[in-house]
């Protein structure tokens, strides 16, 4: 097996992904941790491109690297303790051992199950178009696609209700209205 430029890119993207994730966990400064998260998410976008899934890569960049990381950064900035060093959480060893155990188990499963798989057939050139059609085809994924939008609507309304700090006081407490 000869090394190709693809291998180098894969190594770089993996380094971004894993290194960024490690940085998120190890950094006690929340802003730095958020920046490492952006790096990690960016690496995942790179992996998607290597897997010939350009649509997922674009979504990953737009939604995660773009929107969600901005959201996380803003949230971090409004917390009380941005730059102060928090003491490391208790039971860190236990958590680390558990995480290592999960990683070894999953790693074993993935290596044994996926190690010998033959690569799938070539990705068709119009894969994005096919994905779009699958989303609106009742025989394919129309129902989950539509339900996802209802999920977002419900979450939106709920989030506004929970987060709003000036709820209208137009409805007095329940009581004495049951003659209606």
């Amino acid at each position: 097996m000869s090394l190709t430029p693809l291998h180098a890119i894969f190594a770089l993207m993996s380094l971004f992904t894993v290194g960024g994730a490690v940085g998120v966990v190890l950094n006690r400064n929340l802003i730095y941790a958020a920046m490492y998260l952006v790096l990690s998410l960016f690496g995942i976008a790179g992996l998607f491109i290597l897997l010939e899934a350009p649509f997922l890569a674009a979504v990953q960049i737009l939604v995660y690297v773009g929107a969600i990381s901005v959201l996380i950064t803003i949230t971090v900035m409004v917390t009380r303790c941005v730059f102060c060093k928090e003491p490391p959480p208790r039971q860190l060893t236990l958590v680390a051992v558990m995480a290592a155990l999960v990683m070894v188990t999953l790693g074993f499963v993935i290596m044994t199950r996926f190690g010998g798989l033959t690569p799938a057939a070539d990705v068709p050139a119009d894969s994005i178009e096919q994905l779009g059609v699958a989303f609106v085809n009742p025989q394919a994924y129309l129902v989950p696609f539509e339900v996802a939008s209802i999920l977002l609507l419900g979450a939106l309304i709920g989030a506004i209700f929970i987060a709003r700090d000036d709820l209208p006081r137009d409805e007095e407490a329940v009581g004495g209205d049951d003659h209606a």
Binding site: V143, V147, L151, G154, F161, I162
Partner: peptide, 23 residues
């Protein structure tokens, strides 16, 4: 599997709101 996950999340997110409803 895809519908399972989307449906489960749709139900769960609304239940979180209902649980924390009394602000």
């Amino acid at each position: 599997l895809i519908l399972v996950y989307v449906a489960l999340e749709t139900a769960s997110v609304s239940l979180y709101i209902m649980a924390g409803f009394q602000r």
